[in-house]
Design a protein around this nucleic acid. Structure first.
Length: 557
RNA sequence: UGGGGCGUCGCCAAGCGGUAAGGCACCGGGUUUUGAUCCCGGCAUUCGUAGGUUCGAUCCCUGCCGCCCCAGCCA
């Protein structure tokens, strides 16, 4: 796999901190973690976090754990665990040792909660959700103490134990950290750290009746794993004092440093699990792995490569300011990779027949098509050239402007790898649609070279009408028609979907070779773009191609 | 009208007191059997703004303006 780590780009602020901590000896080795909640599929925003956390481990010789943050059994499922593991591996990363789960620590977390109670730093509260909100105060006014705040340690211990034993109903009791109900930081107003939940957990089943909350779990899980740098997104900044409070209060043997960075926003897309879920549930897309989705699985099915994702993440960098990254950066990294790694093939997406009047009937010339423009002349495949061909409808114009380099009355053009042909005539149906174009060809120009050496500017691609194979091609465009869908709360993001995000072409004509591709393979259709064999809808001998991305087409008329 | 963040080219992003890297996009030109690739060249007298400190400030200080996040028994 190629990525551009070899270029000495400046370190982002997080890597600088890691480098400094290693240099000063604060840490012998960096230990990071990627902590997804298994409640949905990973999207490109997660890829940024994955590249950061695993990337640091690779670059600094450290370790990176994969840890599932599974503290809410009502939302989490095993199938997401499997999908997430597959996505991380597909990106090319390897987690240190076994996969970790926050649920591995439930017993330790419980014992530490007992410690907290004994220190007088946590109490069982019986306020219901509504009262709890009321007591919390507002952004501008302080909260007030819960009437249960000053229970004795013994009583708290007994109540918490009974919570654990399943003696109480959901919602009736919670364990709260005793911090400061007047704190300007709402997260410090005696946050709930344990609640009663009787759901079945995907790993621990019905063993537990109480489940720890994120703020309590995350810092301790980090601590237990010896994480040195706990990287998360900006919205957790306000939680950092609580992260630190738990570790300090419990006097833990180590204290990971939480560092926040800005989450990824990509133009013309949404990176919100909740909104992606709605697209799936309301069937605006075919599923989590719809090639138009910017989920890791959708991206993969679309034909993107792991290297292009990693290079993209390296290119955009890590910062703390809100940003909206242009989709063109992603596409640029994709093209950089595919340009050198995707073999060239030929497929006509919108066929119109071209007949070479002076070419012998029944003759099949096998001409050589180059697989990669940068490779030696010998890396070729045979292409059957016959009297009747298909060319792209857009490659012929009845009244072409001067700068149009393709076929038209009076024009000469090169059929790539084949022959030079000169326009003879064309036919139209009653609706005025062009049905057939007639040309004559210079039989001496095989390979596309003029015998007398004259220049031919235009080169177009073609497929033999008799030897070509009909295939289905999905022409994808961006899923949304505005650059910042979902940003304006006045508008439902569903109304911002691009009605032309998919166009299915059922009569594309492909060179025979194209039927032999393995699902998941990405090739370039010369002059048209990069296309990937769909891994779900293709059948042997009946491939379905997804347009991964178009070619750049600067100045094309 | 509480607290926490952020503000360098259209979009990202370096810069760490010594006089504005790089990428994307865009605009020119060259090569080309993909109007692709590749190659050259252009693209911030200026760093949200107003003051202050300094020989010198994008970097330090102060005020102002703008944007984002926080009142789940979600993560």
């Amino acid at each position: 796999m190629s990525d551009n780590t070899e270029e000495k780009r400046p370190l982002d602020f997080i890597r600088q901190i890691v480098a400094d901590d290693l240099k000063t000896g604060k840490h012998k080795q960096s230990v990071t973690r990627f902590p997804p909640e298994p409640n949905g599929f990973l999207h490109i925003g997660h890829a940024k976090s994955i590249c950061l956390n695993f990337g640091i481990a690779e670059e600094f010789g450290g370790r990176c754990n994969l840890r599932f943050d599974d503290t809410n059994p009502s939302k989490e499922e095993e199938k997401y665990v499997e999908a997430i593991k597959r996505d991380v591996e597909w990106l090319g990363f390897k987690w240190a040792g076994d996969v970790h789960y926050a649920s591995d620590y439930f017993q330790q977390l419980y014992e530490l909660a007992l410690e907290l109670i004994k220190k007088g730093k946590a109490y069982v509260c019986e306020l219901d959700a509504e009262h709890m909100r009321e007591y919390r105060g507002t952004l501008t006014s302080p909260g007030k103490n819960s009437p249960w705040r000053n229970r004795s340690v013994e009583e708290n211990l007994e109540l918490f134990t009974r919570m654990k034993e399943g003696e109480f109903a959901e919602g009736s009791h919670v364990l709260r950290a005793k911090i400061d109900m007047a704190s300007p930081n709402l997260n410090l107003r005696d946050p709930v750290i344990y609640r009663i939940l009787n759901a079945i957990h995907h790993r621990t089943g019905s063993e537990w009746h109480i489940y720890p909350m994120y703020d309590y779990t995350h810092c301790l899980s980090d601590m237990l794993e010896g994480i040195t740098h706990s990287l998360c997104t900006l919205e957790f900044q306000d939680h950092r004092p609580l992260y630190d409070w738990v570790l300090e209060t419990l006097e833990t043997p180590c204290h990971p440093q939480q560092i926040e960075f800005a989450r990824l926003n990509l133009s013309y897309f949404i990176t919100s699990k909740r909104k992606l879920l709605r697209l799936v549930e309301e069937k605006h897309v075919s599923g989590w792995d719809d090639p138009r989705m910017l989920t890791v699985s959708g991206i993969r099915r679309r034909g993107y490569t792991p290297a292009s994702l990693r290079n993209f993440c390296a290119t955009i960098g890590i910062g703390r300011s809100d940003s909206l990254i242009s989709l063109s950066i992603l596409e640029d990294e994709l093209r950089n990779d595919l340009n050198v790694n995707a073999p060239r093939r030929i497929c006509i997406l919108d066929p119109v027949k071209l007949i070479i009047d002076n070419f012998p009937e029944g003759r099949v010339d096998m001409v050589d098509g180059k697989n990669y423009p940068q490779n030696p002349e010998t890396d070729t495949r045979p292409l059957p050239f016959t009297k009747e061909l298909y060319i792209e409808r857009e490659d012929f114009m009845e009244e072409p402007p001067k700068k149009y380099f393709r076929l038209g009355p009076g024009r000469e053009v090169r059929l790539k790898y084949g022959y030079l042909v000169q326009y003879a005539s064309h036919e139209k149906d009653s609706n005025g649609n062009i049905t057939t174009i007639h040309c004559t060809c210079d039989l001496e120009s095989r390979g596309g070279f003029a015998v007398d050496g004259h220049k031919v500017k235009g080169t177009i691609h073609w497929v033999s009408a008799s030897e070509g194979k009909t295939v289905t091609v999905n022409l994808y465009e961006r899923l949304f028609s505005v650059s910042d869908p979902g940003t304006n709360s006045e508008v439902d993001f569903i109304d911002q979907l691009n009605p032309h995000s998919i166009k299915v072409v059922n009569n594309a004509v492909a060179e025979p070779e194209l039927l032999n591709l393995q699902p998941g393979t990405t090739v370039q259709f010369e002059r048209m773009g990069y296309f990937c064999v769909d891994s779900r809808d293709s059948a042997p001998g009946k491939p379905v191609f997804n347009r991964t991305v178009t070619l750049r087409d600067s100045g094309k008329i």
